[in-house]
Amino acid sequence: MSIRPLLLAIVIASASAFPSLAQESDLVGRLVGVWVGEGTVRPRGFDAPEKIRCKVKGERMADFQVRFAGRCATTSGAAAFRLRVAQDQAGQVFAAKIRLSSTEADVDFKGPRTGEGMVLAQIEPLEQGARLLASEILLMLPLNGDIRMTNDVTDQNSGEQAQSLDIRFVRQK
């Protein structure tokens, strides 16, 4: 008896029972779909939190590159939102550009994988009024689950820290 059919059966069985290697490594691909997110935001980093709602669509732009864009609204205004995120083939290193229409400039991030997500650190801190702020985004992408995005900001001058964003995105059918 040839061992080949048996091996094939084992491979098929394991593929259905566990995420494939491709799924496992293609973390950014999990952003693909239509999402509605809700949570809180501190628009200027350290101000009072406000409720935020986002409606976004994740679209694959290339292999290992996804555009996650839409619109976010708070009770005091709304703005377009765009996250472009790319990863290496192994799914261990990530780079992202985030644009809010009010700033009209991409802000660059990069960082490593952490479990089922990624940690994206802002490359250059940004001036926000009297503060010099650096952001660190934690984007958790559990397979077939909700996405959670948090953003911790640090005032580079004072060392003060705050969570400026916490949104949970639910996939829409």
Partner: peptide, 21 residues
């Protein structure tokens, strides 16, 4: 609050002013 948030996803709405502002 839900109404104000949802309304801002309507194309053409440019701004909102309410007691939340």
């Amino acid at each position: 609050q839900n109404f104000i948030l949802e309304a801002q996803f309507i194309d053409g709405i440019g701004g909102v002013y309410s007691i939340f502002s």
